[in-house]
Structure formats: structure tokens, C-alpha cells
Design a protein around this nucleic acid. Structure first.
Length: 496
RNA sequence: GGUCUCGUGGCCGAGUGGCUAGGCAAGGCUCUGCAAAAGCCUCUACAGCGGUUCGAAUCCGCUCGAGACCUCCA
């Protein structure tokens, strides 16, 4: 009835039926952030997209091991050989120990993930925790003759690799073209070929982050960590490897080359790439300086924002488009998303309180029941079609209409029948909360509610409605709160 | 310059060779002490030009436009 889950695989450039290598287990590796600065909304979208995949696979009964790394070394800045490591640079600029930089932004990243209700991965390994393995992999590639050492640095020999394998198959380019189109850059002479990439870099004397190695003190190249950590925790071959589109080349291409080169195995069966968040039609990126931070959305404190937007509104907003499409931010779209999100949450609240009941004179309506059942099935259908959250949300809204009609009595549960009613309730809640990860974020400050209640108390007192006064006191006492009715005014305190 | 993606109604955004996406906005109706909520209905589409087809927004070609990657970026 419902077609099987299909996933768009960048390798084949088409949707493929999802068949794990060793069901019910699924191994998924996602390239995490480089923790040298705050994550912006574009970063969040990627991790949100994989959060959805993770959640849906789990809902489908798979046992998922989800590995998402933290890049805390090796990510070079600039184009030249002498380019500085991002973490190092930040540490120097802020006068911090590199690991302080790493810790600060890792904490910040985790906080944002939590705000957006993005589940933590099963394993979150850091590059600096796997230096030994990275040196090991570099050695193996040297032994295979696929790498060469120059002056304390080790490079991957792309053209050598390409003699037997296909460097560029993921991102769809060929090595000759790559070489022909590479600009001449300062400091690249020591590489045999401009397309070669660093496995291990010699640390300059002033470089703070350094580890001993067979080639002298240095630090690992960026691409190495993902190969090492995915292999270590998921095996040489695993199911899904993901990341942002902008990592396709060179990062993921290099990963494939490292894996195939060292152990002869293509690391991932399915490559999944998420698209970019744009603002005014242009990619949001740290280097372009047009990024908006989650904290700025939440406070509304940014020149481009007209008002604050909460994490759940943003989560909903992002889920209203497909992960492989670019998503443009505009105030109109955000406001529409805000209302839509609230509509969905209202539906959820109504549904939670709905119970099935037979009613005199109301008959089962086969057609209506089938329609609701169809909407439920459609949720699975849409998610099975390459995790199409946008379409799923559309179906949920159709269900909201039914839910609201049930609440106002325009529709009766008896018309749906118990089976369909239960299915609707189960499906709606499961998809909204578990799969889409949307939750209410009602900010009912206890203080505000108490104030309102004490105001009623005040008025009751004035009107000498002592029955009501006692009632309010009693109900507050149930919550561990006593009313302090003093000459100076009315206040409350925790009951001691 | 090379490679690739995209161009859907007032806005956002799915989608498929023929069957209502959905949200927001606008208009109308029902319900309602008032108001709100809710339900129902309506409106404006598939960049342009050709081609394939019984039929294309969906496939192919060209044109125009936008973007991404090719160098760090999720």
C-alpha cells in the first residue's frame, strides 16, 4: 500500500529505496560543526534535516547509530599552504587556549541544538580525540603509495588515486578539469599537484595546536577526521553519510578517496546533502557576513528581523521546505510560519483532549473515515518520499481541520469509527512530536498567572465574596503556595 | 570560464505526464449575547518560445533570469 522509504542518493543522483546494510541497524554519519564560532541558522538547518532523518528512521523501527563529529582541529583558513587553523586563529585573536575556544563554541552549539529540539547523536567524537587513528590512516595511505611526504607534511596523491579509482564521482567532476581550473596559489608549490590535499600538516613554530608524528610535530588535515571516526564507530562501510551541500566538494570527495584508498571500500551507501539557507537569495555563510544567529532570531535583535522568532517557529519554518531545496528567509515567510506553527500546536492541544464516543443517531461514515485514514497514510507516504516534511505538514494541516471540526461538534468521532479515530490520534501526535520534533513553547510564566489569580483574589476580597477568597487560597495551597494578605498589599510565598 | 541546480498563484512552499497539496494574506457564508475560535466556499499558478504526446506545470531542446560548487563554509 504505502511505498517503501526512498532516499535521494547524491552518488547515483536519484532516489533509491532505502535498504540498510544490516537491518534493523542503521549507521549514519553527519559532518558536524567546526567549533570556532557560533552556529548560524544555515548550520542549524543541516542538523535539523538529519535530526528528522534520525527521528523518522527510529520511528520506523530501525536501530540507528548516529555519529556526528565536532571538528576541533585541522580546519584551515585561507587558501595557501601556510593557512592558519581556524581554531588556532580564534585562540590567538581572543587570547585563549585553543581548547577554550573549542569548549566555548561546543557548549554554544549544544545549547542551540537543545533549543531547537534537535536530538543529540549517539556518539559525538572530536577530531583531537582521534589523532592516533589519523596518523595511522596517513601511514596506511603512505604504504599504499597514495600519499607522499614533503617537508614534514603529508599529501594525498589525487592523480595516483585516480589511475585506479574515480576521484570526483560524488561531486561530478574530473581530475583533469580540476587541475586545469585550479588557480595558481602562493605556497602550493610543494604539492605535486594542486588537487592534492593535506593528510598531515607540519606545524609552524608559532602554531599552538601540534602533535608528535612520524613526520615531526604537526596536525591532521581536515578530511581525515571524518574518515577515521566514521570507520571507528560505524565500520568501513555504513549506511548514510550526510552533510551540507557545500561539503560535497572537496570534503566528502576526499573522504571517499581516503576510505577507498586505505581499505578499498566506499564508505557510505547513501550520501545525503542538505541545501543552503539563503537570505535575499544569497547563501547564508559566515564568510559572507550575512548570517543570523539563533540567539538573534530569539531576541529579534538583528537589523533584518522585524520581530523575535522562537526556535520552534524556525524549526517549523525550515520543515516547511524540503531539505534539498534552498530556503530563503523573509519576514513574510517567517510570519506565515509562526501562524502555521501555532495552528498546528492548537490542533495538537485539541486532539489530546479528544476522546472517542458513540453518539445516538450518528452513523459511521465510510467515506469520511476513509478520507481521514488516507490523510494518516499520506503522512507516511510523504516521509517515505525522501523525508518530505513539507508535504507531511500539509497532510497534518488537513487533519487539523478534522480535529477542529470534532471539537466544535461539526464532525463526530462516531462518524470516523473507533479504529480510524485512534489511528488519527496516534498518527498526528507521533508525526508532530516524534518525527517532526515540534513541541509547544508556551511561555506561561508562573508569576504572571499568579498575578492574574491574585488580582481575582483582590477583587473577591473587595466584594467580600469570602467563599471565593477561600477557594483561591485553597487551590493555591494545593500548588504549595500561600497567599500573604498583608496590610501593605497582597503577595505570595512558597508554603514552608 | 567549467560543473550543476532552480524558476509554481499577492507571499512562502510541496508536487506529479491526466486525479483539491498545504500555510499565510484577501473576499463571502455558517455558527455566535458580543468578540474570538472553528467549519465551509471563492480568487489569482506553473519564466518565455518551440517539440514529443490523445493529454505536460510535470519529458526534450533553446532563450531569459536566479543561485550553488569549482578556494574555507552546514
Amino acid at each position: 500500500m504505502i511505498p517503501p522509504l526512498r532516499v535521494y542518493n547524491t552518488l547515483s543522483r536519484q532516489k533509491e529505496v532505502f535498504e540498510p546494510l544490516a537491518p534493523p541497524h542503521v549507521g549514519m554519519y553527519v559532518c558536524g560543526p567546526t567549533v570556532y564560532s557560533d552556529v548560524h541558522l544555515g548550520n542549524v538547518r543541516t542538523f535539523l534535516s538529519f535530526d528528522i532523518i534520525y527521528r523518522y528512521l527510529k520511528q520506523q523501527g530501525y536501530k540507528v547509530r548516529y555519529v556526528r563529529n565536532i571538528t576541533d582541529v585541522g580546519h584551515l583558513l585561507g587558501e595557501t599552504n601556510e593557512g592558519e587553523d581556524r581554531i588556532s586563529q580564534k585562540a590567538r585573536l581572543e587570547n585563549l587556549e585553543p581548547m577554550e575556544v573549542v569548549q566555548r563554541y561546543t557548549n554554544g552549539f549544544h545549547e542551540v541544538m537543545q533549543q531547537f529540539n534537535i536530538l543529540p547523536p549517539s556518539i559525538e567524537p572530536a577530531a583531537t580525540g582521534h589523532i592516533v587513528e589519523q596518523i595511522g590512516l596517513t601511514q596506511r595511505l603512505l604504504e599504499q603509495g597514495l600519499a607522499y611526504e614533503v617537508n614534514g607534511s603529508v599529501y594525498f596523491d589525487v592523480s595516483k588515486y585516480n589511475q585506479e579509482h574515480n576521484y570526483g564521482k560524488l561531486s561530478g567532476r574530473n581530475v583533469e578539469e580540476l587541475i586545469a581550473n585550479t588557480r595558481e596559489l602562493e605556497g602550493q608549490e610543494i604539492k605535486r599537484n594542486p588537487a592534492d590535499f593535506a593528510l598531515w600538516k607540519k606545524a609552524q613554530p608559532e602554531h599552538i595546536m601540534r602533535w608528535p608524528s612520524p613526520w615531526g610535530p604537526g596536525f591532521p588535515g581536515w578530511h581525515l577526521e571524518c574518515t577515521v571516526m566514521s570507520t571507528k564507530y560505524l565500520g568501513e562501510r555504513f549506511d548514510i553519510h550526510g552533510g551540507g551541500m557545500d561539503l560535497k566538494f572537496p570534503h566528502h570527495e576526499c573522504e571517499i578517496a581516503q576510505s577507498v584508498g586505505s581499505c578499498g571500500v566506499d564508505p557510505a551507501k547513501y550520501w545525503v546533502h542538505t541545501n543552503m539557507v539563503t537570505i535575499n537569495g544569497q547563501k547564508m555563510s559566515k564568510s559572507l557576513g550575512n548570517s543570523i544567529l539563533p540567539s538573534q532570531f530569539i531576541t529579534g535583535n538583528h537589523p533584518l528581523l522585524d520581530q523575535p522568532y522562537s526556535p520552534m517557529v524556525l524549526r517549523f519554518f525550515m520543515l516547511q521546505s524540503h531539505y534539498a531545496s534552498t530556503l530563503d528567509i523573509s519576514m513574510e515567510a517567517l510570519q506565515a510560519a509562526k501562524k502555521g506553527y501555532l495552528k498546528l500546536m492548537n490542533g495538537m492541544r485539541v486532539l489530546r483532549n479528544l476522546e472517542y464516543s458513540e453518539q445516538e443517531g450518528i452513523e459511521f461514515n465510510e467515506k469520511g473515515a476513509q478520507q481521514v485514514k488516507g490523510l494518516c497514510d499520506n503522512c507516511y507516504r510523504s516521509m517515505n518520499d525522501d523525508f518530505n516534511t513539507a508535504q507531511t505538514i500539509g497532510h497534518l494541516f488537513n487533519l487539523v481541520k478534522k480535529i477542529n471540526a470534532l471539537q466544535t461538534g461539526q464532525l463526530s468521532t462516531a462518524e470516523l469509527g473507533r479504529e480510524v479515530f485512534d489511528q488519527m490520534k496516534q498518527t498526528f501526535i507521533s508525526f508532530t512530536e516524534e518525527v517532526l520534533g515540534l513541541r509547544e513553547e508556551l511561555d506561561l510564566r508562573p508569576e504572571n498567572l499568579l498575578e492574574a489569580l491574585l488580582e481575582v483574589y483582590r477583587q473577591a476580597k473587595e466584594q467580600k465574596d469570602y467563599e471565593r477568597v477561600d477557594q483561591i487560597r485553597a487551590s493555591l495551597r494545593n500548588s504549595g503556595i500561600v497567599v500573604k494578605d498583608m496590610k501593605q498589599g497582597i503577595d505570595w510565598a512558597y508554603e514552608e
